[in-house]
Computed example of a mutant assay.
Amino acid sequence: MNRSRILSKIFWRHRPFSQIDYARPCSVTLGTNPLIIREQCTVILKDSYIKKFMKAVGWMDQERTRLKLTGYFLYECVPDKVAYAEWFEDLELPDTFASWFMITELHVWLLLVRYMAEDAMATGTDKKKYVKGDGHFVRNCIIEALWADVGNRIKLLEGANPAIARNQVTELSEQFQASLVAYDEGLSDDKVLAGAAWRRFYSLSEDVKAEHVARIVHFIRHQLSILDKIPSEDLRWKPQIDWLSIRNH
């Protein structure tokens, strides 16, 4: 009996387990050092090898998977539901990929503003403190979905060169980061917001009609108000966004 227990302990300690990095939900880091297991192995024995593997790669992390799907579904509400033709016609924008991206970028920013509010907490000084939570994770998933879509669309452009396409994505990425900062600065000031829209959509051209910029600002304010009224649970589990028409502003 004692000999049997000793052999069992030896076999358990030398099983070929690998260390796994759970820091990222969809990444697996293989290690070479054996995992140290407690002497009480009843809990470990309940999980099959398949379940352990699925947990390692993130398939069993239902919460993270749902949040990632939420991010992708939210992004899909932009290219699928935005009336791009109205933006081109009413704001006198050229029907080009660059214009499509600027319109998409603005709507994505609106989603980011709403979802980052999920991580805002009031402090004792009446100021809001942001913490990295579900909102931050979904925000990253929305941006990830955006660039996946942009990459696919650029490849479909006639005569697209892979090297040129990569450079275009890099340039768009830089413009995207600058636009997020500019729009954020305009959240509390319509004049600043109008300047950001004028710069982004019309490159500060003096020939642009002031009413076009004003319509963009009114659209942003109205859309943000509607997004803010969506309950957190609906935004998280029923990511369906109905975008306002630019013609109503």
Rank of each mutant, 00 (worst) to 15 (best):
S179H: 12
D134T: 09
Q175H: 13
P162F: 01
A165E: 08
Q177D: 12
Q177I: 14
L146P: 02
I164C: 01
W147D: 04
I143H: 04
E144K: 11
R153V: 02
P162G: 02
L156T: 14
A178F: 06
N152K: 13
L157S: 04
E171P: 00
N167F: 09
W147V: 05
C141D: 07
V138W: 01
I164H: 06
G151L: 01
W147Q: 06
E171F: 11
E144G: 05
N161H: 08
I164R: 07
V138M: 04
N167A: 10
N140Q: 14
A165P: 00
R153L: 03
I143A: 03
N167C: 09
V138S: 02
Q168E: 13
V169P: 00
D149C: 10
C141G: 02
I142L: 03
F176T: 10
H136D: 10
A178C: 08
L172I: 14
A148C: 06
D149H: 12
A145M: 05
K155M: 06
I154N: 03
R139A: 10
Q175R: 15
A148E: 13
F137L: 07
G159R: 08
A160G: 01
L172D: 05
E158R: 15
I142A: 01
S173M: 10
L157A: 03
R166T: 14
E174P: 00
G151D: 04
W147A: 00
V150M: 08
H136V: 02
V150H: 04
V169D: 00
G135D: 02
N152Q: 14
R139Y: 06
V169I: 14
G135Y: 00
Q168C: 04
L156A: 07
